[in-house]
Write a protein that binds this DNA or RNA. Structure first.
Lengths: 330, 330
DNA sequence: GTATAATGTGTAAGCGCTTACAATATGTGT
DNA sequence: ACACATATTGTAAGCGCTTACACATTATAC
């Protein structure tokens, strides 16, 4: 039988309430009493049962992270950040691989609430807006990442995709490029990256040739690369709105015997591919996913702790200069 | 105010106990009563508070996974498997990135116990044997992965590294190789892989040249590759006990203008490197980490559910044939 | 119809902790 | 020494659920 607060109280000759106060660092305890109780706690090896305390305080010190899949490196980075700051706050982090199915999400959320989980971080691209809105209305603590549900009263950890696109443009401009290709697909986030890129280039009175990819993976990149090569006036720089697109483009270009970065500079977006994993490390806009996770957890913790109204944090992307960009050769 | 079992009881005109029985699918309820209560539960939208029930049943339906870091792809695979089967059992999975510090592990374990977590899966290479032994003695449900604490009464999900090494040998033998190099470092698990390899080769009255690497990463592989090239009688096949070693060897060999697999066949071990991530997909022994995770969670669940005494499961490695092995050219 | 065994339901005592409120002790100023 | 404010501690009522036990209702057997 585990030792309870009751055992401590009896052994130390005080009431339950006093022991509870000592555990919770209440200021209303005489110093000498505190010491005596503390000594008993240690001697008996008493460990407060947090399930019992959760029943009265309604705080389990547990938060959950909903992601499509932990095996996705971006998700893993987020999870790392979340778990890390959660641990700093004495919180633990429950991981839920919800895939892309809204029903699974709803099912998880339901169980999490029943288990008394204090708050949830949504880091799923395709969550059900209704679910989030409903939770928000019942003022259940939430943090949304990277995607928005406008009407909801929730915390948000946002990326600045437009700034990322601008960063890419700036880098290429500084290298002296004057002709640009933009490869992107139609997804909203990617469009935002594209927008930042185009606006920055246009601000210099230069122009961008847009190429729409049929997706955002390597094969779509390969395809775009082939199209690039067939252009009459080949640009000297390409901005692809995902790293995989960039890698596809590079592969296609390599096949045709062109040299990177001599003949073509390529900038990707994401930063999750280990530079060591590539022959030529990719120059890319790094989305600091771990920082996003940390921010998300911190926001959640703040509303949990102080009932503070929801806030939002923007995590800025960074430029990583690899070996795929250089001065234009012409 | 959330609706409680009490509200349901009053509304349905039965006692708390009966509602509880209905929730828990107790057989001692008349069918008509069950229906009436069920209807009330649905009408009122009652959701049982699992914190309260955990207080009496001592079951939170929460399990924890201790890993060095979720950003390590092997850990992510394990976590995926664990979370997946946990979810099937209505369990949730708490992730703890404990790094390599035994103190952090102990700290996590302490908090997990206080929070009433039902069981823990240790998937950390360097855990503290004393900690595991202590928990095992207090018969706290545990599953150990890939590493052992001999005296402990715990579940184990084990890899068969020797069989993996044998698999590699068999593959190369079938291709017709007769001269072999073995590259490994001194870690126990890797030695086991090596043992399986060597024994299988020796069983054919053939011999293996051993090369000790200074570690198990790419640079150690590069180094081993250079040594390989300087051998008078160069073998036609190499078995490296980790994928990173294999990749280093391949890089070194490529540098010297040799062709793989024409001049040299290479087999790695691990299988966590996406084949698409390499120019030439690596032939390797795949350690099915996700299956390991699933097995670990299932074992834990079984002891949780039925108080069954600890068991162990061996997850067999598989051969993945990439492009780095072929028939010997001589 | 009565004794006996199921079967179904209710009562009440927890699970281990928190916390409002009451009670007591201690200190202050006069 | 007395009235009153303040610091400390205790009492007891929960938090929302489970479950042993008692009790009431059948059903079964004779």
């Amino acid at each position: 039988m585990r030792v309870t607060i009751y055992d401590v109280a009896r052994d130390a000759g005080v009431s339950l309430a006093t022991v509870s106060r000592v555990i919770n660092h209440s200021p209303h305890v005489k110093e000498s009493t505190r010491r005596r109780v503390q000594e008993t706690i240690e001697r008996l090896g008493f460990q407060p049962n947090l399930v019992a305390s959760a029943l009265t305080t309604k705080r389990t010190r547990l938060m959950a992270l909903l992601i499509p899949s932990i095996t996705n490196p971006a998700c893993a980075q987020v999870a790392w950040g979340v778990e890390e700051t959660a641990a700093e706050m004495d919180y633990n982090c429950i991981i839920c691989n919800v895939g892309a199915d809204p029903k699974r999400q709803a099912h998880y959320v339901n169980i999490l609430i029943r288990k008394g989980i204090d708050g949830i971080i949504f880091s799923t691209p395709s969550y059900d807006d209704g679910l989030v809105l409903d939770l928000s209305r019942r003022s259940y603590p939430l943090t949304l990442m990277a995607r928005d549900v406008p009407a909801a009263q929730v915390n948000r950890a946002l990326t600045d995709d437009k700034a990322g696109g601008a960063l890419a443009a700036q880098h290429l401009l500084e290298l002296g490029h004057t002709s640009f290709l933009l490869v992107t697909s139609k997804e909203e986030v990617l469009q935002e990256r594209a927008r930042g890129f185009v606006e920055t280039i246009r601000a210099q009175n230069l122009d961008v040739i847009p190429v729409e990819a049929k997706g955002s993976d390597i094969t779509a990149g390969l395809d775009a690369g082939v199209r690039l090569l067939s252009l009459a006036n080949r640009p000297t720089a390409v901005f692809a709105t995902t790293d995989l697109l960039a890698i596809g483009i590079i592969a296609a270009v390599h096949c045709m015997g062109l040299d990177i970065p001599r003949d073509l500079s390529v900038v990707g977006y994401g930063g999750l591919i280990e530079p060591e994993a590539m022959q030529l490390p990719l120059t890319t806009i790094v989305q600091p996913m771990r920082d996003m996770g940390k921010a998300a957890a911190q926001l959640l913790f703040d509303t949990l702790q102080e009932g503070r109204e929801p806030r939002q944090v923007v995590v800025e992307p960074k430029l990583y200069i690899g070996g795929t960009t250089g001065n234009p050769s012409r």
